[in-house]
Simulated assay, not measured.
Amino acid sequence: MNALLEGIGPLLQAVGVTVMLALLAGIGAIVLGVLITIARVSPIPILRWAAFAYVQFFVNVPLLVLLILAVFALPDAGILLPLTPTAVIVLAVYEAAYVAEAIRSGVNSIPPGQVEAARALGLTLGHTLTRVIVPQAMRSVVQPLGNVMIALAMNTALAAAVGVVELTSQANRINLVAAQPIAIFTIAGLIYMAIALVIGLSAGAIEKKVAFSR
């Protein structure tokens, strides 16, 4: 019991690492996902094919494989990064494929007449994408993006496999000392559930706000 109580402080620190991983990777995934979506709907064939190949690659390769490759293969190639930034980058690059698919579904829901109207007003392709298509697409896919962010938060647990001391890793360390797996991993599971609830409720609130403002 004493070992369990002593592990509360380190466990809370690990929760902070998990939240940081999810937040930084989430921001990166959204930014990169928007760029990939723009490439996928652009009239330039090479950009469309490159974006399509990107999405297909990352949705069909397990995240754990990418993490292991990044941690152990990049140093052999002369690229040295600390574990946590490496995990953030891999998570962002991986989840960006799912963000791009979610946003693309929103783009497909926009009536073609709006694009034609933008062209009639003399807007360039770049302005049409950034001022007409992408903003509306983002509004229509808030909840799907929230689901992607929840999956991202859960996927941060895989960073434990490459040495990042986040929630799952710290829970396992505490269990090795306290030998109370049911209590420790129940607490960890409840924390993950709380993170998912916060993301889901935030997405719902944002969805209502942007729907009201349309």
Rank of each mutant, 00 (worst) to 15 (best):
F212R: 15
A137S: 06
P112T: 04
A39R: 10
G33A: 14
F72I: 04
E6W: 02
I36E: 11
L145V: 00
T186C: 10
V34K: 09
A25V: 04
V55I: 03
A159R: 09
A160N: 02
I30M: 13
F72N: 15
A137F: 03
G126D: 07
N108Q: 13
R48T: 03
Y192I: 02
I79V: 15
Q56T: 03
V17Y: 03
I174F: 06
L123H: 02
A161E: 13
I187P: 03
M20G: 09
F212Y: 14
R139S: 09
N147V: 01
Q13E: 05
E6S: 04
L69M: 15
P43V: 04
L121Q: 03
S109V: 02
G189A: 08
R48L: 05
Q170E: 05
V142Y: 02
G9D: 01
L167M: 02
G204A: 14
P181W: 06
L69A: 15
S213L: 15
L67Y: 14
A205S: 13
G122K: 03
R104E: 01
T18D: 06
H127V: 03
A203M: 07
P112R: 11
L23M: 13
I150S: 07
R214V: 14
A183N: 01
V61A: 13
A96N: 12
G163P: 10
L152Y: 06
L47M: 12
